[in-house]
Simulated scan of single mutants.
Amino acid sequence: MMTRRQRIIKLLEERDYSPSELALALDMRGKGAKKVILEDLKAIQKTLRREGKVLLIKPAECRKCGFLFPPEIKVPSRCPRCKSEWIEEPRFRIGSG
């Protein structure tokens, strides 16, 4: 039986996912699911470094004005430029270092 983090790693080795998509793929529901996924991604990033792999991050982007956020393991709630809350979540994938 694989742990949740092992399942996330397996998924991210296949293609890129947003935190919401990972929560759905793992059948995690509820308000805190995305937060749990983000915490798992931070831990996975450290694990991957030790294995010579990297967690690739496509940054979050404002769908209204196109502002690109820094590539971080977090989901912004509001655009600093136009104040829109219409934010495309960051996407994550595992690549070789």
Rank of each mutant, 00 (worst) to 15 (best):
G97V: 07
I9K: 14
G32C: 01
I87Q: 02
Q45M: 14
E88P: 00
R93I: 14
E39K: 14
S96Q: 06
P19I: 01
I37M: 01
I57R: 06
I94H: 03
R93C: 08
G66E: 01
L26P: 09
P80C: 08
R78W: 07
L68K: 15
R78T: 15
I73E: 00
P59S: 13
E13R: 15
D27W: 01
E39W: 01
A33R: 02
K35V: 15
L11H: 06
L26W: 04
P80I: 09
T3I: 05
L55F: 07
E51T: 10
I73R: 03
M2H: 10
R5I: 15
R91Y: 02
S77L: 13
E85R: 15
K74R: 13
I37S: 00
P70C: 12
T3G: 12
S18I: 11
I73K: 05
I57H: 01
K31G: 02
C79K: 04
L24S: 08
A43E: 11
E13P: 00
Q45R: 15
L56S: 12
L48N: 04
P70I: 13
K74L: 11
E21Y: 05
C79L: 02
V54R: 15
L55Y: 05
E21G: 10
L56G: 09
P19G: 02
C62A: 09
A25E: 11
A60S: 11
A60N: 08
V36A: 07
P80Q: 02
C62I: 12
G32P: 00
D40F: 01
E51G: 02
P70Y: 01
Q6T: 10
P59Q: 07
K74T: 15
I57S: 04
K58N: 06
Q6M: 11
Q45W: 07
E89T: 06
L11I: 12
K42G: 04
R81A: 12
Y17W: 08
I73T: 07
R91G: 05
S18N: 02
L41N: 09
K53S: 12
M2A: 14
A25C: 03
L55P: 09
M28S: 01
C65N: 03
D40T: 08
Y17V: 09
V54Y: 00
R81I: 15
I57N: 03
K58Y: 02
T47G: 06
K46S: 13
L22M: 13
G52K: 10
Q6L: 12
E85S: 14
E14M: 06
E72Y: 00
K53C: 08
R81D: 04
E88Q: 14
K83W: 03
K42I: 08
K58V: 12
L41Y: 05
Y17A: 11
K42D: 04
V54I: 15
V75T: 13
C62S: 10
S20N: 06
E13Q: 13
W86Y: 11
E72S: 05
C65T: 10
K10Y: 04
L56M: 11
L41C: 10
M28K: 05
I73W: 01
R7Q: 12
L22H: 07
L55M: 11
L48H: 10
Q45P: 01
R29F: 02
R50A: 14
E39A: 14
R4D: 01
K46A: 15
L68M: 13
G97C: 03
C79N: 00
K34S: 05
A43Q: 09
C79V: 04
E88S: 14
E39C: 03
I8H: 06
T3P: 00
T3V: 03
M1V: 14
E14Q: 11
Q45L: 12
Y17G: 07
A25T: 07
K35G: 10
R15T: 15
